[in-house]
């Protein structure tokens, strides 16, 4: 579903923010992308969703090269950023209708999807309110609902659980599991290693822009916890800012 081949990206033309990254995410995978602050997680995610141009390599979503045909790629993925900066002047329902219009969803389809996910995430009664009145967590929930309503084949998420209450986190993890059972691939970056360990079947660890470990979760962590493996990989000194 997501093929990343030898991707390089530099902001200043001198130092690579990410270098030679190669990853494969299949349909049905929940792929955790973990690393220290400034390791390059957000840079790679922004390259995948077309917010940043990468210098070398290739990224394909369902066989579509994001550099060559980004518009087609956008139709099959959804992105959730680490900070839910959305239109404060809109109401929740206006925001969701906006996304539905972008994906040409018919009235019945959008009604069903918005109804379903806003019910699960306790947002039904809030949809008529202005987004400016929402808390950080509510905005995050709204962005997540917006990402799910067009049934994407690939979900790309940057720290999706930040600001969510435990109940919402739990429900979203269940939604993710349900989606992967239906064949959706999920690629997300996180600092919460317990979550990654619990719900992901694959993991990649990035350090200073390079993937230093990648594979099946069970193979990588063996009998240890993901936190122990991560600390070992980074070295004790590097791991302190997790």
């Amino acid at each position: 579903m997501l093929e990343i081949r030898n991707v390089y990206k530099s902001y200043d033309g001198k130092k690579d923010a990410i270098k030679d990254i190669t990853l494969d995410i299949e349909s049905g995978d929940i792929f955790a992308f973990i690393g220290h602050n400034g390791a390059g997680k957000t840079t790679l995610i922004k390259c995948i969703v077309g917010l940043l141009d990468y210098d070398k390599g290739s990224i394909k979503i369902d066989g579509i090269d994001v550099k060559e045909n980004l518009l087609a790629a956008k139709k099959i993925f959804a992105y959730i950023p680490d900070n839910p900066n959305i239109y404060e002047t809109m109401s929740g329902i206006q925001y969701l209708n906006f996304i539905s219009d972008a994906f040409n969803l018919f009235e019945t389809e959008r009604k069903e999807k918005i109804g379903k996910y806003s019910e699960i995430l306790d947002m039904t009664s809030k949809l008529g309110d202005k987004i400016s009145s929402y808390s950080h967590g509510m905005k995050q929930k709204l962005v997540i609902i917006g990402a799910l309503i067009h049934s994407p084949k690939l979900l790309v998420l940057d720290e999706p659980f930040v600001g969510l209450d435990p109940e919402a986190s739990f429900k979203i993890k269940n939604i993710f599991k349900e989606l992967t059972e239906e064949g959706t691939a999920i690629f997300f970056s996180t600092h919460v290693l317990e979550t990654a360990e619990k719900i992901c079947n694959k993991v990649a660890v990035i350090r200073h822009g390079e993937v230093i470990k990648c594979g099946e979760m069970s193979v990588i962590k063996k009998d240890e916890s993901l936190e122990d493996v991560f600390m070992e990989l980074l070295g004790e000194g590097d791991g302190k800012d997790i």
């Binding site: 109401s91 209708n97 539905s100 219009d101 969803l105 018919f106 959008r110 309110d129 202005k130 009145s133």
Partner: peptide, 23 residues
Amino acid sequence: NQQNKKDKIEYKNSTIFKTLLKK
């Protein structure tokens, strides 16, 4: 600023151009 009146919940579809303009 956080207090505001509620919008009616409607699911009407529109072209993306009109939606952008409305925004």
